[in-house]
Design a protein around this nucleic acid. Structure first.
Lengths: 222, 222
DNA sequence: ACAATAATGTGAGAAATCTCATATTTTACT
DNA sequence: AGTAAAATATGAGATTTCTCACATTATTGT
């Protein structure tokens, strides 16, 4: 993590407007940080000092269980806030957030502006919408996880995350995200290959029978 | 559902203060309704007209999947808000809410006060805290559901939901809540009986070996 | 009080998913 | 370039959980 020099910082602040979320001038309170790929924005069980607004990059939000299993709660993509729950103090200790690519974040010192933020209707309204949306998608994901087998969920995930008929997510992340073992993920992936729905190529898979994948995914959607 | 007469309504409003959550006088906008046990407060996929504040009673929040499985997302107990996500319009269609006991709710017409609410910092701050707390507990529940077997989760649930060493939740609800089949719930319950951790009695179970249940539950807690 | 409906309970077999062991390939680091 | 660490891959066997079928109480409405 490194703090960007003034001129670069200002350029980011100009490029990614954040003022709309506040009814007072937030710019004086912003520090711009850059995180390398793989760096932690929040360590698990830490007490965050900053509310972040990620403007570039990708990260994963996860928790580690006592038995060693990891639940990848969400893939986080810019633009988004991070640490808002901790700001609210509803949850004192943070979950973990680790970047998946080089990321740029606006950091706002909680200590400096907590009071102002929690009395700012513009910020609070945005935050309500954000939290509500986050809760809705999380609930959808988790209830589906327990109502459908991996076959359906993986088909759905492949369709959502593939880019131009090409799927290349990391197995190690996907199994934590879908809540199954690495072994089982590979097993179902092999089934899909076997059935000709996908075909291994280089470091990923080409979708070779999209309609069938869509049929499997459609069993979930309501 | 029936609307309570003026005098009863006022008595409830007096007994359960709600003004603290608003910076304007909300009382003129409140209608007091009573729901019988088993009545629906929201039908699934409906568009709510009211934001509710439940002051007495218990209900369950659930969704039905395409394959017929039901996910019981949460047991709702007074006092709490309902329909707040729909008010925010983050989610246009509601999930289902059905009461588990006779319940009394304050109903606030969305159409009448939406504008005012979404600009009210007192209300918005409370709502942020509420949503954040809800998201935190839901995430904890769901990630644990996929990281631990029913043995651990059920032990934990029995300890949490039993009253004075006596467990008497409905199996049909519990299996939807814990995300397993009815059959499997009964199977693990039988295991616990077999091992002497619980003992069937009348319409429920007596906890006959709390320490062992606690040991199982402790595998989860972090 | 009686029928209808919901909840409880159990067996048997199958499917989904897990654990563990181990080998190979890729990626990251110095 | 060389080594350590991470990611990929696969087999075998065990566990967990599911489906379905069916029987037996409770509960509810009229």
């Amino acid at each position: 993590m490194r703090k960007l020099p003034i001129d670069e910082s200002l350029s980011y602040i100009e490029q990614y407007p954040i003022s709309q979320y506040f009814s007072f001038d937030i710019v004086p309170f912003i520090h711009v940080y850059e995180f390398d790929k793989g760096e932690f924005i929040f360590h698990e069980h830490s007490i965050p000092d900053y509310l972040y607004y990620m403007v570039e990059g990708k990260a994963k939000l996860y928790i580690t269980h006592k038995n060693g299993k990891i639940s990848l709660i969400d893939f986080i993509t810019a633009p988004t806030f991070m640490g808002e729950m901790e700001l609210l103090n509803a949850e004192r200790y943070s979950k973990g957030i680790q970047t998946l690519s080089k990321s740029v974040c606006f950091a706002i010192s909680i200590q400096e502006v907590k009071e102002k933020l929690l009395a700012d209707p513009v910020f609070l309204k945005m935050l309500c919408l954000f939290l509500s949306h986050k809760a809705t998608t999380a609930t959808a994901k988790y209830t589906q996880n327990q109502a459908y087998s991996l076959e359906n969920r993986l088909a759905s995930f492949i369709l959502l995350s593939s880019d131009q008929q090409f799927y290349k997510e990391k197995h190690t992340e996907v199994c934590d995200y879908l809540g199954v073992s690495y072994r089982h993920l590979l097993f179902v992936l092999a089934q899909f290959s076997e059935a000709g729905y996908i075909t291994k190529q280089n470091r990923g898979y080409v979708l070779t029978n999209r309609p069938e994948l869509e049929k499997l995914a459609a069993e979930i959607t309501y």
